[in-house]
Every structure is written in structure tokens, then in C-alpha cells.
Simulated scan of single mutants.
Amino acid sequence: MSRTLASLAQGRTARSGQDGRSIQQIRILQPDLSETDLLEDTTLTLRWSPVEDAVRYRLTLRHSDTGETLLEEELPATQTQFQLRSLASGDEYELILSAPRGERATLKTEIRFRVMSEAQRAQLRWARQNASEAPLVAGLVFYQLERYPEALDALQRAQQKYPNDEAITRAVNNLRARTRQ
């Protein structure tokens, strides 16, 4: 945890970043992957904005590591949401949504996301239950799990509890700057 605080205080991020993570031409409304691509639940409701002149939608779900196709669905042009069930804890996925548009070019969106492992979900539950009593540790757990708004709230409580700790102050400032992006 001390390394995590030092990293955050120096302005380094814990996540891999967004390079190659998302190519969007169809606007995805849900899940919101703007802060993190690490999802809590093993069920995901995918929602997107309708595409003008779409003939249909085609949805493909693959394991990121193996490329194995887990699901291929053809959906009517009127459908703009789909529920993915039974995603495996700890796995990484690539979802491709395309919209053929007759004579016009097909639009395509690719997103990558990960599903928390059982251990990560247990850590998240612990951090949420203990954020008031142990704000510094909870904040660092939230940060490692890419729950940045929750990390900021907890670290601000830690800053009140330890007002002279410069590392916490720097961490709060860096996290504030990061969450404004």
C-alpha cells in the first residue's frame, strides 16, 4: 500500500491507460468506460445510440487473451441494448458492435473491458464498508481497483484525519487532476 500511495503522490496512474482500449464510431451509452474498463458485475447491459440508416446490428463478444468468440448475435435495427450474462470473473473481453447501413459504410465500435475477480470484489466490498474508519487504506484500495471518485472521497477523509501528511495531500491533488480529465 505504501508503494501505491507513493505512486499516486508522484502522479503516476495505476491503470494501463486508454491506448487501444476503445475505438468508437457507434456511441456506447452503457457501460461508462470513461474512468475505468474494470467492471464489477458479471452481467452487463450494453446500450448504444441508434445509428441512422442501420439495417441491423451485429454484436460479437470475444475473450481478449485467446480471441475465442463467445457470442455472435444479429439484432434488429430498432434494438439499442443487449444484456450480456455470465461473464467470467477475472476475464478480459473484446466486444465488437457493427451497424451495416445498406449503401453507406458500416459503422463499427470495439470496446475492451475486464470483469473484477472475486478477490477484487471482496476488496471493493471491504473498502466500501471501511472507508470511514480506515480512509487511507480504503482510498488506496479504491485507487488500485480504478474506482477514482471513491478513492478521492476516501483520501480526502484521510487528509482530514492526517492533515500534515504531504504524501496524502499530493495524492489527493493528483487524483483531483486525474478525475477532471
Results as ranks from 00 to 15, higher is better:
Ser2Gln: 11
Thr4Ile: 06
Ser7Gln: 12
Gln10Glu: 11
Arg12Asn: 06
Thr13Ala: 14
Ala14Ser: 15
Gly17Arg: 09
Gly17Lys: 09
Arg21Glu: 12
Ile23Pro: 00
Ile26Tyr: 13
Arg27Asn: 10
Leu29Trp: 07
Pro31Asp: 15
Pro31Met: 14
Leu33Ala: 08
Ser34Trp: 09
Ser34Gln: 14
Leu39Asn: 14
Glu40Asn: 15
Glu40Cys: 15
Thr42Tyr: 13
Thr43Gly: 13
Thr43Asp: 15
Leu44Glu: 04
Trp48Met: 04
Ser49Asp: 15
Val51Pro: 04
Arg58Glu: 04
Thr60Ala: 05
Thr60His: 04
Asp65Ile: 04
Thr66Cys: 13
Thr69Lys: 10
Glu72Phe: 01
Glu72Gln: 07
Glu73His: 02
Ala77Arg: 03
Thr78Tyr: 02
Thr78Val: 02
Gln83Ala: 10
Ser86Trp: 10
Ala88Ser: 07
Ser89Met: 09
Glu92Asn: 11
Tyr93Leu: 05
Ile96Val: 05
Ile96Trp: 01
Leu97Cys: 09
Ala99Ser: 13
Ala99Phe: 05
Glu103Arg: 12
Ala105Val: 05
Leu107Pro: 13
Leu107Met: 14
Lys108Arg: 14
Lys108Asp: 11
Thr109Met: 09
Glu110Asp: 08
Glu110Pro: 03
Arg112Ile: 03
Phe113Pro: 02
Arg114Glu: 11
Ala119Ser: 08
Gln123Asn: 09
Gln123Phe: 06
Gln123Tyr: 10
Arg128His: 05
Gln129Ile: 00
Glu133Asp: 05
Pro135Tyr: 01
Leu136His: 03
Phe142Gln: 01
Leu145Cys: 04
Leu152Arg: 13
Arg157Thr: 01
Ala158His: 04
Ala158Leu: 09
Lys161Phe: 07
Tyr162Leu: 12
Ala167Phe: 02
Ala171His: 03
Asn173Cys: 05
Asn174Asp: 07
Arg176Met: 05
Arg180Leu: 07
Gln181Asn: 09
